[in-house]
């Protein structure tokens, strides 16, 4: 279980609170107007934004003070998810061994992960040689290799077209199933939430509301969501 215990985020005039949990294996969408703090909340969970107060717990263990890389989470950013000067195999390999000294098994695992996301045999290529969708696939392959129990997605597919985005959401679902991961995904598109997430968190007016069933939320949208959906 991932728990946000009385979390308060503060920066200049920005202010956001969150106090809720999600169950292991859940698929949660974070939705709300831009500037409300969806990304900030995700960054706080990942360890890039220290909360003013409150604790972040995974399975009861406090991770609030841990370095980002040490937390049991993997995060995919909006962009810059791959190092452009490294090959795909090296980019993925860094997820397994920070010194890039891969064993035979690890090398095979990299190949396998690439094949799993539809990039079989492309390990020697550099990100610039890939399309946007392929770059997202490579980043997901690394998440697959790292196999952390929580996958945080900060709108990594915002730049992709609708059809490609659907492919990616399906792939995220597959990766999460393979690694038995809980997924938190920031999105500004209600269709993403409906398609992918069983629970949705509404982030608006300085509060990240406790997650509720997605279908229910959209059937009976509260005022803030109505304002956002228009």
């Amino acid at each position: 279980m991932l728990t946000l215990e009385k979390i308060v985020l503060r920066q200049e005039s920005f202010h956001l609170t969150a106090d809720w949990s999600v169950n292991r294996g859940a698929r949660v969408a974070l939705i709300g107007p831009s500037g409300a703090g969806k990304s900030s909340l995700l960054n706080a969970i990942a360890g890039f934004f220290a909360p003013a107060s409150g604790r972040i717990l995974w399975q009861g263990a406090d991770v609030t003070q841990m370095a980002p890389g040490a937390r049991p989470f993997t995060i995919l950013f909006q962009d810059q998810n791959l190092f452009p000067h490294l090959t795909l195999a090296q980019n993925l390999g860094l997820g397994l061994s920070p010194r890039l000294q891969l064993s035979q098994d690890q090398r095979a695992a990299v190949e396998q992960a690439l094949a799993r996301v539809g990039l079989a045999g492309m390990g020697a290529q550099k990100p610039a040689q890939l399309s946007g969708g392929q770059q997202s696939r490579a980043a997901l392959a690394r998440a697959l290799l790292r196999a952390r129990p929580v996958l945080l997605l900060d709108e990594p597919f915002a730049a992709l077209g609708p059809a490609l985005k659907i492919d990616m959401l399906d792939l995220v679902d597959e990766v999460a199933r393979l690694t038995d991961a809980t997924v938190l995904m920031v999105t500004h598109d209600p269709a993403d939430a409906r398609r992918f997430a069983d629970k949705t968190v509404l982030v608006a007016d300085g509060v990240a509301q406790a997650p509720v069933a997605t279908a229910e939320l959209f059937a009976n949208p509260p005022a803030a969501l109505q304002a956002y959906l228009g």
Partner: peptide
């Protein structure tokens, strides 16, 4: 600005960050 968060999220130690990220970039 571009790669510090990715470097941290992968938990690369200082020597690896220097060798694989900073020096090449």
């Amino acid at each position: 600005a571009d790669y510090d968060r990715l470097t941290q999220s992968l938990g690369l130690p200082a020597v690896s960050a220097l060798r694989f990220v900073i020096l090449p970039r």
